[in-house]
């Protein structure tokens, strides 16, 4: 996987399933040329997406979750601070759709408010990983040589560390630190920042590898060579030719990962080291529901259900997008 700056094989020798997608772009370009129509790859992908029912289902779910994250009061009449201890651990009823928890708070309201933290972590982590991973992958693939070796080896090192393990170590050591590099890391956004930071720092290698092999495949193409012969600057070549043709697999994988990050955030919060009360998140709620699990399983059930649906929605969307961008699967 090293120093194959000129490699063009259908399957680059690198590990990881992500890279199997790397052939996509080139194949798509070839397909497009053979087709003879003027449709771009993206337009083509969107056309196929529109016909995919999974795309519509997952999009609808994601829109609802996004709306919950932005405007939770739209969904519930209760205030987040509402609680009535004398009515603790009630089962679902007309007044409390999902029942009440140990503190007598409305579980439905808390679940709706919990969406914000999960979605924020998922979206921010995915964006961060996509940006950092693509940038490094682009540099490694395009520049090649010792820069590639350096970035790839660095990626291997970070790739070898399990994300959850490093999350536990990192977050538990920061638990009592008020600021990191001058940024306050306690409080709602502070803790979200911590979690996102961990995911970005240790999640970029897979996307870097994917991007790198994509770039390596696009680079020797005729249109890139032509642009170079015409005297285009490297920046222009990257922006106009390499990036648009190499980006698709990275976006696909990032979308699928979004769901995985939401699940990882919930895991860390459940362990008590991710988001912490009074911040509401699904992981925190699942943790709260653990003690009364035997007597009142509904306290744990509803946040867990929402978590599963959200993760499923993002993974389904990622799947649909992958299908659209991968002509082989059509």
């Amino acid at each position: 996987m090293t120093d194959k700056t000129t490699a063009q094989g259908a399957t680059p020798g690198g590990p990881g399933n992500d890279e199997a997608d790397a052939t996509t772009t080139r194949a798509a370009v070839v397909a497009e040329a053979a087709d003879g129509t003027s449709r771009s790859l993206t337009a083509d992908a969107f056309r196929s997406l529109r016909r995919n029912p999974f795309f519509w289902i997952s999009s609808a779910l994601i829109v609802i979750f996004m709306l919950m994250a932005v405007w939770p009061s739209l969904f519930t009449t209760y205030d987040l601070g509402f609680n009535d201890l004398s009515r603790s651990r009630e089962t679902p009823s007309g007044a409390h759709w999902f029942g009440t928890d140990t503190q007598g708070a409305d579980i439905y309201t808390r679940t709706v408010y919990g969406a914000r933290a999960s979605i924020l972590v998922g979206v921010l982590a995915t964006t961060g990983v996509l940006l950092l991973g693509s940038l490094l992958g682009l540099i490694a693939g395009y520049v090649g040589g010792w820069v590639d070796t350096l970035i790839s080896r660095l990626g291997d090192i970070f790739f070898a560390i399990p994300l959850l393990l490093v999350g536990i170590i990192f977050l538990s050591s920061l638990q009592d630190t008020p600021t990191l590099l001058g940024i306050p890391i306690q409080g709602y956004f502070g803790v979200i920042f911590q979690v996102v930071l961990v995911f970005v720092l240790f999640g970029w290698p897979s996307l870097m590898r994917l991007m790198r092999s994509s770039v390596i495949q696009v680079k020797p193409n005729d249109y890139v060579q032509a642009a170079r012969a015409l005297g285009a600057t490297p920046m222009r070549i990257i922006r106009r030719h390499v990036l648009p043709n190499a980006m698709a697999p990275a976006i696909v994988v990032a979308t699928i990962n979004l769901g995985a990050y939401i699940a990882a955030e919930a895991t860390l919060s459940f362990l008590g080291i991710g988001l912490r009360p009074p911040t509401v998140s699904w992981g925190v709620m699942i943790n709260d529901g653990l003690t009364p699990l035997r007597a009142s399983p509904h306290i744990l059930f509803f946040p867990a259900l929402f978590l599963s649906i959200a993760v499923l929605a993002f993974i389904m969307l990622g799947d649909a997008v992958r299908d659209a961008f991968d002509p082989k699967s059509r």
């Binding site: 536990i168 538990s172 459940f270 362990l271 008590g272 943790n287 653990l290 003690t291």
Partner: peptide, 10 residues
């Protein structure tokens, strides 16, 4: 203690 800590889980 009911709180599941990282340690307790591991």
């Amino acid at each position: 203690i009911a709180s599941i800590s990282a340690v307790a889980l591991l």
